[in-house]
């Protein structure tokens, strides 16, 4: 007993070294993240006033802020539901689109490096100002003019490819409305989807390259077709990374959603800090719930090789 205290065993020594390695992060996590989360909860339960000399004082008001956000606030409920709705539409689309693109880019063909470089460009150019200007230009170009005011561009975009025409055509064919709306929505936001799936494509390409070649050889020898190979070899082995991608996509689309904007404006333009905390807390909790449910759902169906 005494001896042990004096001389550290190798494993204890190693555990101390490891602890030292993560120490900076641990301090930061407790100091900034954990503390901030508790403060956020505290703010949401109280009325915050900023003192003129700096600093702030809190009056505890209980759940008033929550009740206000859900009963009285004009736009919060609507913004929250549309953001979540958009997220739920986007996530499957982005996941499957990026898987498809990764499969395509994983094949060897001439000019592959160039194409890959172009595909990762949105990851590099994801600045707010750049995105805004690009959206404007995109609407104008699809309308056939390269420079005009935004209103004119929108009017012009309407004369381009008429989505309504196709929608009518498909509904005359007797397809159910919900499917048509979903597809129309998907077509409408194709550029958003492409631009949002840069990192996801990277992850899937890396996943595809980590599949051992011998698997495919076995499949070939057993005489499976390309279709069967995809569903029996490629897809199961890529499955674990679908979870990673879904998590990334959900978080990414949440950070760019209107809820965040609303919370930011409430805090720094209307100076209502308590309400802003409520907004961000509620939406974070909702996002985390979605993540947990989706991950559970996928993980049950996931096949783990190891």
């Amino acid at each position: 007993m005494n001896k042990k205290k004096k001389k550290l065993t190798l494993s204890r020594k190693r555990s101390i070294t490891g602890f030292l390695f993560i120490l900076p992060w641990l301090i930061g996590f407790i100091w900034f993240y954990a503390r901030s989360l508790f403060l956020s909860i505290e703010f949401s339960l109280s009325n915050l006033t900023v003192n003129p000399g700096g600093g702030y004082s809190l009056d505890f008001v209980g759940l008033d802020n929550f009740l206000y956000a859900f009963r009285a606030h004009a736009t919060y409920k609507q913004v929250l539901t549309t953001s979540i709705g958009n997220m739920l539409i986007d996530v499957p689309l982005i996941t499957f689109f990026s898987l498809f693109m990764a499969l395509l880019l994983n094949k060897k063909f001439r000019g592959r490096t160039l194409v890959r470089a172009i595909f990762f460009l949105p990851v590099i150019l994801n600045s707010e100002a750049i995105t805004a200007a690009m959206n404007l230009i995109r609407t104008m170009m699809s309308g056939g003019i390269s420079s005009a005011s935004a209103e004119m561009a929108e009017a012009a975009a309407g004369t381009g490819v008429g989505l309504t025409y196709y929608i009518e055509m498909f509904s005359n064919l007797g397809l159910p409305d919900s499917i048509i709306t979903y597809i129309a929505g998907a077509v409408d936001r194709i550029s958003d989807i492409i631009n949002a799936s840069g990192v996801q494509i990277i992850i899937f390409i890396a996943a595809l390259q980590s599949i051992p070649e011998s698997m495919y050889e076995v499949a070939k020898i057993e005489g499976s077709t390309a279709y069967e190979t995809f569903w029996k070899v490629t897809f199961p082995l890529v499955m674990p990374h679908i979870v990673t991608n879904v998590v990334y996509t959900v978080v990414d689309s949440f950070t760019q959603s209107e809820v965040v904007e609303l919370a930011y404006n409430t805090a720094f333009k209307e100076m209502n800090y308590g309400l802003s905390s409520v907004f961000s807390l509620v939406s974070t909790v909702v996002t985390c719930l979605i993540l947990v449910i989706v991950c559970r759902f996928i993980q049950k169906r996931t096949f783990y090789y190891n």
Partner: peptide, 18 residues
Amino acid sequence: VVMIVIPTDTIMLPLYMT
């Protein structure tokens, strides 16, 4: 993982105050 999943927006106010 929590740090990745929870967006910074949730803790922006306390960070600002800190």
